[in-house]
């Protein structure tokens, strides 16, 4: 039996938005520690890894580890039926094929129940062609700062953030640098990752030459995180 109650559905809504941008369905692993997910997009270029600790729920009960195959769009539709300050309860039987979701208004005068069918997810989905890539962004980090530059068909653009300065929107930028690095990525994916921005005031980008980019957003005050991994564009 899995049962978890969350006092505010907002985090779950934002989290599902941030996941659905990359994947259609995923296996959500439920354990006594909380809920986690690791899934690649269909082209195997990016990966999303999410963890929502049991502290994000009260109570949180998980008698046996479960893997729930969830169609993210479907869950998103159900979540849209709740108000932001609704209390949400998730329930699943150990050998069931349904996830029950209950929303209750804080004063208890309204309750709605949904039963979502779980799916068997084929983890080894075949790759689709990587035919339609958007433009590339090159990220260059030096001791002076962080620079994003894009070369388009008809125009070029670049943005630079200085180590101790402030970005365009006034937010602080801090850089922890071992070695300078320059990497190129598909902008399309970075745009997908920004879907997680409402979950956190701060985003952390981790780069190292010739390795995937890691983009991390913390959830709440130690409640968990969502991380995206993105394969770089490289010389053949």
């Amino acid at each position: 039996m899995f049962e978890a109650r969350m006092s505010d559905t907002t985090v779950m809504k934002r989290l599902m938005d941030a996941i659905t941008t990359l994947i259609d369905d995923g296996s959500f692993d439920i354990s006594s520690k909380g809920i986690s997910l690791q899934a690649m997009d269909s082209s195997h270029v990016a990966l999303v890894a999410m963890c929502l600790r049991n502290e994000a729920f009260d109570p949180f009960r998980c008698d046996r580890n479960l893997s729930l195959g969830i169609q993210c769009k479907q869950m998103g539709k159900i979540l849209k039926c709740s108000a932001n300050n609704d209390v949400m309860t998730l329930k699943a039987e150990d050998d069931g094929d349904v996830l029950n979701m209950v929303f209750e208004s804080p004063n208890g005068d309204r309750m709605s129940e949904f039963a979502m069918k779980l799916t068997d997810i084929d983890i080894e989905q075949s790759c689709r062609d990587l035919s339609n890539f958007g433009e590339s962004v090159t990220i260059c980090v030096t001791k002076d700062g962080l620079k994003f530059s894009v070369k388009g068909d008809s125009s070029n653009a670049s943005m630079k953030f200085s180590q101790n300065g402030a970005g365009d929107d006034g937010n602080d930028v801090s850089i922890d640098l071992n070695d300078p690095c320059t990497l190129t990525f598909a902008v399309k994916y970075l745009n997908h990752f920004t879907k997680a921005a409402p979950l956190s005031e701060r985003v952390t980008l981790s780069l190292s030459n010739d390795t995937p980019l890691v983009v991390e957003y913390k959830i709440g005050d130690g409640l968990g995180h969502i991380r995206y991994y993105l394969a770089p564009k490289m010389e053949e």
């Binding site: 690791q38 690649m40 270029v45 190129t184 993105l230 394969a231 770089p232 564009k233 490289m234 010389e235």
Partner: peptide, 14 residues
């Protein structure tokens, strides 16, 4: 020119 690499080149998901 640079080509998009696959994440599978770096690691495999569980």
């Amino acid at each position: 020119p640079k080509q998009q690499s696959s994440l599978l080149k770096f690691f495999k998901p569980k």
